[in-house]
């Protein structure tokens, strides 16, 4: 029965990855990537890999979203300066 939790985690990770790609706005994608990181950490725990789960948690929960949002802020400030591009 331990496989059931692996199957559920796998399907959730696949759904989260598909959502992360189909969401086109970078800010909303950063949110979905944060959820994908947490789901990956749970999947790694079910696959008995706590070290990898711990590093995915450390990287995916606060570092990657912070980098993405800071880049969006820097790029958005420039875009607004030259007026609406699109």
């Amino acid at each position: 029965m331990a496989d059931a939790v692996i199957i559920v985690a796998l399907l959730l990770v696949a759904a989260a990855a598909t959502t992360a790609v189909l969401v086109r706005d970078p800010v909303r994608q950063a949110l979905v990537l944060a959820v994908l990181g947490v789901l990956l950490a749970v999947l790694f725990t079910t696959l008995q890999a706590p070290d990898v789960g711990l590093s995915q948690l450390a990287v995916g929960s606060a570092l990657t979203p912070l980098l993405l949002l800071l880049t969006v802020r820097k790029v958005r400030r420039r875009g607004r300066k030259e007026g609406p591009r699109r």
Binding site: L10, V13, A17, A20, V21, R24, D25, P26, Q29, A30, L33, L36, L40, L43, F44, L47, Q48, A49, V52, Q56, T64, L68, T71, V72, V75
Partner: peptide, 28 residues
Amino acid sequence: TSRNLIHAVGCLSVCQAATYVLLLAVGY
């Protein structure tokens, strides 16, 4: 198919997540 480079970098990290899943599935 990305129209925004920041979105493309996010998609690249999704590609990289595939390698984690494959590696750990092989070792289970």
